[in-house]
Design a protein around this nucleic acid. Structure first.
Lengths: 225, 225
DNA sequence: GTCTATATTAGGATAGAC
DNA sequence: GTCTATCCTAATATAGAC
């Protein structure tokens, strides 16, 4: 009975895990880390819970990621990499504003649906005032948003869309699409489901596209001009 | 210099504080608690940091709020009380849909501006899946949202607004207004300010009102109908 | 190069002093 | 009724074993 409560199970870790290469193991850790950080926030998340889900000891995890903060920043780096890769193909001079915006909303919504943990980790960091990742946001996200806003303003100057506040329009698009990851729990309660369905995302895309397109629609041109 | 590093300062607490009545002291604690929870999340917030800001020891704080979870729930209760008091005066059968929506957006934006910590604490809870407050959200928030959505649907049935998806329209309004508290850090970075100004909120209100009103505008009626 | 035993601090909570 | 000294667990991180 003395061995009954033996802590930390010196069970030798079965030997199989350690044979997979480092990259693979790091990927496993990061996959669990993004979920745990999304569920509890940076300070609430514990190395132990991440390690447990990834199937190794917390001390072992810290061999691969020497500190909690480094792990967290790596998680956010990956979140941004994924998001930027999806979004940068848009907002070119491109075709019609309507089509560009439809594609933009679709891509952002898809990210919320396919990577809800990533969206939430990012949102948590921003809500908390970006204490640990503000510099990266300033360097990698803000320039992109500014570039998109400049595109809107160009369209306005060319008379292709209505003269709305381009900055706040961008904020609105970001907020509406982001909320389908961040606020999905409340949405599911309103819709009386366990979680949002594919159909819900389709309905969302239709409404959001309609809202943005209605907002930028030029007033019906006076026929005689 | 030996006293230089004395921990915990057994300074007798000055005697003045304890003379104020319990209600006043609880209000002080709650005011600091909402800030700390907003900055660090539930698990990240520590009793010690809340107590320190409120000017008492953590053990003493726990005399007034016996557990962290009770303090947290009390904070969220107060957040909801404040929010509900501001919102329930709206969404009556009321005048024109345009005016009702303008007032609704204005009130929700004002809450984001005046009570950013309250908004953020609530948002953090929802993002984390509402593990500690889901029942209250279901009982107190969801019915209100459903009622508002039903009002939209009534308007649609009466042909007073365009036939949009009322549920997602409500989600969009919530997301856009909420984001001026939750994402203000990122917005400030984009706008290159330390924090959002009154003018920013005015610009926001104009754009959001325009977006929603454009979305619900009836297609230009055929003149001869 | 990979993993584990150990140190150290800070967390929430209780029992007891005033 | 109000506040404080103390307990115990769990957190991150390091030093050292294999």
């Amino acid at each position: 009975m003395a061995s009954d409560k033996s802590p930390a199970l010196p069970v030798k870790n079965a030997g199989g895990r350690r044979l997979q290469n480092r990259d693979r193991l790091e990927a496993d850790i990061l996959e669990q880390a993004v979920r745990v950080f999304a569920e509890s926030g940076y300070e609430g998340a514990s190395i132990a819970s991440i390690a447990e889900r990834a199937g190794l000891s917390k001390q072992n995890l810290m061999y691969y990621f020497p500190s909690k903060q480094l792990l967290y920043q790596r998680v956010l780096d990956d979140v941004l990499d994924d998001w930027l890769a999806r979004m940068e193909s848009l907002a070119n001079e491109h075709d019609e504003p309507r089509d560009v915006l439809r594609a933009y909303i679709g891509a952002k919504l898809r990210f919320s649906r396919e990577q809800p943990w990533a969206s939430r980790v990012y949102a948590l960091e921003v809500i908390n005032g970006a204490p640990l990742y503000g510099a990266q946001i300033r360097d990698r996200v803000v320039p992109l948003l500014r570039k998109d806003i400049a595109v809107f303003e160009e369209w306005i100057a060319q008379g292709r869309i209505a003269a709305v506040n381009a900055t706040h329009l961008m904020f609105a698009i970001w907020a509406m699409t982001q909320s389908y990851a961040d606020f999905s729990a409340q949405m599911a309660l309103v819709l009386d489901r366990k979680q949002l369905t594919r159909k819900d995302y389709e309905d969302a895309e239709i409404l959001l596209t309609h809202m943005v397109q209605a907002a930028i629609a030029l007033p019906a041109a006076a026929p005689g001009a």
